[in-house]
């Protein structure tokens, strides 16, 4: 299969996935008792007021019509308006997405080289002290709750040693990079574990393979055998694993932003959840699902390019 053909087929699956998520989110909220009007009425559950709100939100129209509107809105980038502030969800998310994107990109920018360095070094001397240290650490850090790890790190590095700021209150993330250190370390602790382990395993297999032995017999320099021949083949599963961790990274960012008081999507989301502001939560869910699908898609295409055999699914 060609790269373009594979990419197109994979993009089709991705679109179907996003459509399915959007449908599920809609159907799910439809099935639950109480709708947005009841939530918006809040402490004033007067039936007349609820009916008026229902009309205002257009909730009195048939289900299929609202479903069509919801999907049409997604395509045109209209996610409705917040029940609390009345602001369009898109502009609400647009402002909040900035700090979240910075945090996510900085984490990824550290995560990728860190994965390669740790995975390759551990695999080169498999069973050695470095490998054992990396393996034990990555195993142990699986699913360590960020909020607990974060407060421990804040206590040590911010309160006792006074080296780093405890929260990001009153500072821009880009102007003051010290603010980013603890949040990124906490996010890396969990998201690095699975890709490092995958890359280590794949590198060990690659280094034991015939083509690497062949490259060695040709007298290629050690670094070229490692980085030019073994790594590209071993990287395919690690890239896919890296995309899977995007899911966890998103969850982690929600928690980490809450702890370090970073004014990103988490603040919007947690506030919307507390106020049961359904359109905002819906919008964030679909947007994040789209990012997750896109990350997986990109990873699968990169993996296909790296090692065409592994990509055919």
């Amino acid at each position: 299969m060609t790269l373009a053909g594979y990419g197109l087929r994979r993009a089709g699956v991705g679109l179907l996935q996003i459509l399915a998520v959007a449908t599920l989110v809609f159907a799910f909220l439809e099935a639950l008792p109480g709708d947005a009007a009841v939530a918006a009425a809040g402490d004033d559950p007067d039936p007349a007021r609820i009916a008026a709100l229902r009309q205002q939100f257009g909730l009195d129209r048939p289900v299929w019509q609202r479903y069509g509107d919801w999907l049409g809105g997604l395509v045109t980038g209209d996610l409705g308006a917040s029940l609390r502030s009345g602001r369009p969800v898109v502009s609400l998310l647009g402002t909040a997405a900035g700090p979240t994107t910075v945090l996510a990109l900085v984490t990824l920018a550290v995560l990728v080289p860190l994965t390669v360095a740790l995975g390759v070094c551990a695999a080169v001397r498999a069973g050695g002290w470095f490998d054992r240290a990396v393996s034990s650490t990555t195993v142990a850090l699986h699913c360590v709750p960020e909020f607990a790890l974060a407060v421990l790190l804040i206590a040590v590095f911010a309160l006792w040693l006074g080296l780093l700021p405890a929260t990001a209150v009153g500072g821009g993330l880009l102007e003051d990079p010290a603010l980013l250190v603890l949040p990124v370390v906490v996010l890396l602790a969990r998201s690095a574990a699975a890709p490092v382990r995958t890359l280590r395993g794949a590198m060990i297999d690659a280094l034991a393979s015939d083509y690497v032995a062949h490259a060695r017999r040709h007298g290629l320099p050690r670094w070229r055998v490692l980085l030019g021949h073994a790594l590209p083949n071993a990287a395919a599963p690690a890239v896919q694993q890296l995309a899977r961790t995007v899911d966890w990274l998103v969850g982690g960012i929600i928690v980490v932003e809450a702890i370090f008081a970073i004014p990103g999507l988490s603040a919007v989301l947690v506030e919307a959840v507390a106020a049961r502001d359904v359109p905002v939560v819906q919008g964030v869910t679909v947007m994040v699902a789209a990012v997750a699908v896109l990350a997986n898609l990109t990873a699968d295409v990169i993996a296909f390019r790296l090692a065409p055999r592994a990509g055919v699914a």
Binding site: Q17, I18, F28, L29, D247, V270, A289
Partner: peptide, 21 residues
């Protein structure tokens, strides 16, 4: 199950909590 895996688990939790309390 594949579709379900596309949505981050923590977000599903928050979505449900937003609607069910």
């Amino acid at each position: 199950l594949d579709v379900l895996l596309a949505v981050p688990a923590l977000l599903v939790l928050l979505l449900v909590a937003a609607s069910a309390g």
